[in-house]
Nucleic acid binder design. Structure first.
Length: 267
DNA sequence: TTGTGTTTTATTGCCTCC
DNA sequence: GGAGGCAATAAAACACAA
């Protein structure tokens, strides 16, 4: 903005209405009578005096009506064309420059308010996301615990079913052996192998398998594959899908909980 | 009444656009 | 180069608690 011309500046000060028709004291400056008289002379005699080097008049606030009218105009258009500025000035008894300054300051206030609003919206969004993240974390924790329990249960059931099926196989082979033995017994009874021997070998093998399954508990790859082999035979479909889910969603594992530090850098 | 914080009016300097 | 916009700032007016 260019500085006031001297006459414009003083004129504007004179034209402004008092903010409220009160507190108009003849000498509120606390100046000496001599100095006040000098100021009065300046006011009356020298209208060409450059007032922004020596403040003669007090700054006055616009009247309520003037502010209302300006606000109304600002709502319509927050920028001011020269014609509108002059017209408004004439209507409100203000210098065009005062109108321009008022609009300028009003735009600055509006901008500040807008920034505050934007900040509020962003903060609300951030808080909502933060809460969401917290809830998801808790949900994840609960699901992980449940998954761990189900895995343990499944493991127990698998071991039991393996045990069962091996016993069944033993039973079947035992029956087969009995049939064979009867046959052989009829054909040649001179063979040295005994029933108790073959039965003992099977039992031994079976117990080896059980021990191996119980102690490995899925920690080695060989036992895992063994377990899976049996799972393919005995585990129900929903249990199998549980396995595949676990393998497919590894990032939800207990060891490595998901982090969103890229989104919440301060956490 | 007075000290202090906030709001409003006005100025200054810089920048952009025509 | 002049006009006008904006950010930063000054200063007056105002509000309010102690």
């Amino acid at each position: 903005m260019k500085p006031f011309s001297s006459s414009e500046s003083l004129g504007s000060l004179i034209s402004i209405c008092p903010a409220k028709e009160k507190k108009e004291q003849p000498n509120t400056q606390g100046y000496s009578e001599e100095f006040q008289a000098m100021l009065d002379r300046f006011n009356q005699e020298d209208m060409g005096y450059d007032t922004h080097h020596l403040v003669l008049g007090k700054k006055r606030r616009l009247s309520l009506d003037q502010v209302k009218a300006l606000e109304k105009n600002f709502e319509v258009e927050n920028k001011l064309e020269p014609e509108r500025k002059v017209k408004l000035g004439e209507e409100l008894g203000l210098q065009p420059r005062q109108v321009a300054i008022w609009f300028q300051n009003r735009r600055a206030r509006w901008k500040t308010k807008q920034l505050e609003r934007d900040y509020g919206v962003l903060k609300a969004t951030y808080d909502a996301l933060k809460l969401d993240y917290h809830n998801l974390g808790q949900e994840n924790e609960a699901l992980t615990t449940k998954l761990r329990e189900l895995k343990a249960k499944l493991c127990r059931e698998s071991a039991e079913s393996i045990n069962c099926s091996v016993k069944e196989e033993c039973l079947i082979s035992e029956l087969d052996n009995n049939g064979l033995r009867e046959k052989e017994g009829h054909e040649n009874s001179k063979d040295g192998s005994s029933d108790s021997d073959s039965n003992g070998i099977v039992k031994e093998e079976m117990s080896k398998m059980n021990i191996s399954l119980c102690f490995n508990n899925g920690s080695s790859s060989s036992s895992t594959s063994l377990v899976k082999t049996y799972q393919s035979q005995h585990v129900r479909m929903e249990d199998q899908s549980l396995f595949s889910t676990e393998e497919g969603c590894n990032f939800f594992s207990v060891d490595q909980a998901p982090t969103l530090h890229w989104y919440f850098p301060e956490q």
